[in-house]
Design a protein around this nucleic acid. Structure first.
Lengths: 256, 256
DNA sequence: AATAACGGTTCAAATAATGAACCATCATCC
DNA sequence: GGATGATGGTTCATTATTTGAACCGTTATT
């Protein structure tokens, strides 16, 4: 890994659950030497990607990231466009709704709306979702480029629960069903007791760029709920895709 | 500059106005060799900080930045807290309202609301504001750490217009007035024909972390408008500070 | 007073970054 | 249609940066 990759991997250690970390802890988790870690942190701090708390000397993500993220968002208003519809869907379903965007090789959770229930599915912003074992992942793969699907099925397919599909053939079938149906269903693929439905958000070229999903405790979810949420999530995804791509509906059919 | 700094300086080349750039252009602007630039871009792409358009081969900021920015925002909900109040203020004043956050050595514009007027002050997200020649900068300095003020007055003080204050003594006086008044006024300090008022948003330690400002064409701005906007911007800044710091009002008085 | 844990620093050795020259492709232009 | 120039991308010997074991200073714990 080059120096730049190392610096970025330090940034990746910060999460919603642990937004502040000390030097030793960062070095330990990243597997770098303390001196190296510190030098990288200094470089990141100089550029506003990391800030250091004056009192605790702990590090946290910096304001420079917000700036760049806003510039990206200005060109490609994924969040701005999608969040209102995520909110609507959360209101309508009274369950957890989350939005994800594809980055490098996984789906990244970029927004979440939680219902008021005490018993709910909890998801953190920034959480990374595996493609083969989540409703979002399957929905994404249903409209992804062939090479992406191939790479996913070839890669390691962890079984997170006893229900996780790990056979390439089974996953492939699940992807096909999702494509035909218009939305995916994932029954406890990542965690016991959670059932989710998701639909893909498409770019102008007809390929998926992200997903919107509803996740709920299985205990209170009926077959009718699933069907209803499936239609709702599909409608929301379609609306987001349309708003993102102007009104050129026709291009929304995938061509390759 | 280390490799990490170089990589980040590539990211800094993207703006709202030019969100996509080619390899040669990036190399030229950054002052790096083409090979170096490409290697850095590859490292950034691998980590989702940069994406390459498949058709044009141009580069743009990537989704990984959104992810990290959201993690930061979850810990320190500056935008989430402030944006509604920026919106309210924009509605009330019918002029451009912008929010900025301090990063490294300058203020960074993180949100803007524009009025419906054709003749309005236009500000882009991500724009960097000099401290000595903007209402936001003066408002920030009025509640910044002594060392920050010192560093600013010692640094180069560019005159952007004939009205820009460049004498350290004059700027210092302007800062003092802003502190006493509760808001700053900047009359054409950065651009001819623009007059702005701003107030500082404070952290729990009583020092400024950002600003909120109203900018308008001078032609339609009266002295009464200024006073009225000053009070409004001050109220908004105070409200944002309070919401950010819980209700511990008392800590809002600076101590050092 | 001893210990341990942490943030931070040093400098010779190891490693990664560099850039001039290169190739391939595409559009433009006598 | 072939010369021209602009672009993205690649190579590899040279060069400069990164690395990490050992170090120091501070703080909290025992």
């Amino acid at each position: 890994m080059g120096t730049v990759g190392k610096a970025i991997s330090l940034l990746e250690l910060f999460t919603v659950a642990e937004p502040e970390l000390g030097l030793t802890e960062l070095a330990r988790r990243a597997g770098f030497d303390k001196a190296t870690t510190r030098r990288l942190l200094l470089a990141l701090t100089d550029n506003g990607f990391v800030e250091q708390d004056a009192a605790t000397r702990h590090y946290r993500l910096g304001a420079g990231l917000s700036r760049l993220a806003r510039i990206r968002e200005a060109r490609f208003p994924f969040l701005q466009t999608a969040v209102p519809l995520v909110r609507d869907l959360a209101g309508a379903t009274a369950e957890t709704v989350h939005l994800s965007e594809f980055g490098t090789d996984r789906l990244v959770t970029v927004h979440v709306e939680h219902p008021a229930w005490a018993n709910r599915v909890n998801i953190d912003i920034g959480q990374l979702l595996p493609l083969h074992s989540t409703a979002s992942g399957i929905a994404y793969l249903a409209f992804a480029r062939g090479e992406t699907v191939k790479a996913c099925l070839a890669g390691p397919l962890d079984a997170f629960t006893a229900h996780t599909l790990v056979e390439p053939a089974a996953i492939s079938r699940s992807i096909g069903e999702a494509r035909d149906r218009g939305y995916s269903i994932c029954d406890q693929g990542l965690e016991e007791g959670v059932i989710s439905v998701a639909a893909a958000i498409l770019a102008a070229d007809g390929f998926a760029i992200g997903t919107i999903a509803v996740a709920a405790p299985k205990a209170r979810t009926t077959t009718a709920d699933i069907a209803q949420r499936g239609l709702a999530v599909m409608a929301a995804a379609r609306e987001i895709s349309m708003r993102l791509n102007g009104d050129n509906l026709q291009t929304l059919r995938r061509q390759a």
